[in-house]
Amino acid sequence: MQPRSRGVSALTGLADAHFAMPAAIAGALALAFGGAPLGVLLIARRMSLVGDALSHGILPGAALAYLVAGPDPVALTLGALGAGFLVAILSSLLARTGRLPEDASFAVFYLSALALGVVILGRSANAEALLDLLFGAAGGLDATGLIVSAIAASATLILLALFLRGFLAESADPVFMRASGLPGGLLHLLLMMLVALNLVAGFRAFGALMTVGLMMIPAASARFWARGYTGQAAAAVLISVLASGSGLWLAQALGWEPGAIMTLCASVLFAASALIGPNKGLLQNLPGRTHLEG
């Protein structure tokens, strides 16, 4: 693959050589507070790759919007959101029928969506736009992007607070949820839609794939710092903030795309967590350590 030329983003039409640091910080903070707690739930439900699947799922919507309206931020956001919600709803419904495992349901829809997105973008004869969608364009976080990010983070935190008991029960013991007549299916769908919303909030600035990275890697790191969900969610937010802050600073200093650098910073923090984290970190289980009394 050719290195991407710097200058004007093919997708957004905005200059991406120098991104506005305050806007990038605000967007990254919103993603940390909204995305990281969702990432912890996804990992706990053994659905780590669903975020990845949904990130591809938003592609045809964004591509169609780009083909119809050009680099209009509102159209791109609405297109991506529509496609993300559609993939989330169809995959969840198919999985609920019990005919296919959940990951297989997502695979069917996201691969179809990805292919559709490539076909649509191919008609616009603009391959750079596809790269922008997947990996981000630093100048993509304009006023519309910030508003979507703020809505995504606020909606996520409010709905998590309201339905946390339901999300935990549906994740840990779905059989109990069904037998108790509780709306497990609806909660599951709500969770998937929140994931799609956060991905759409982050994708224009940090890229769809990198946004998943910023959602999942801090969440995976958090498992080494706390046992319960609340502790893990708090740790994931903190790690995401640290990764985003250091990544943005490095990206600004080096003049590189921030999404990938932020994700790499999260990877470094994951390695440190896996090594020194008090909850099953590698150093906790060194051979020769004395055991406890009881």
Partner: peptide
């Protein structure tokens, strides 16, 4: 209802 195959995910971060 306490089923034979309870389906509780023991890796889930819950007490």
């Amino acid at each position: 209802y306490l089923p034979q195959d309870h389906g509780v995910d023991r890796t889930f971060p819950m007490t």
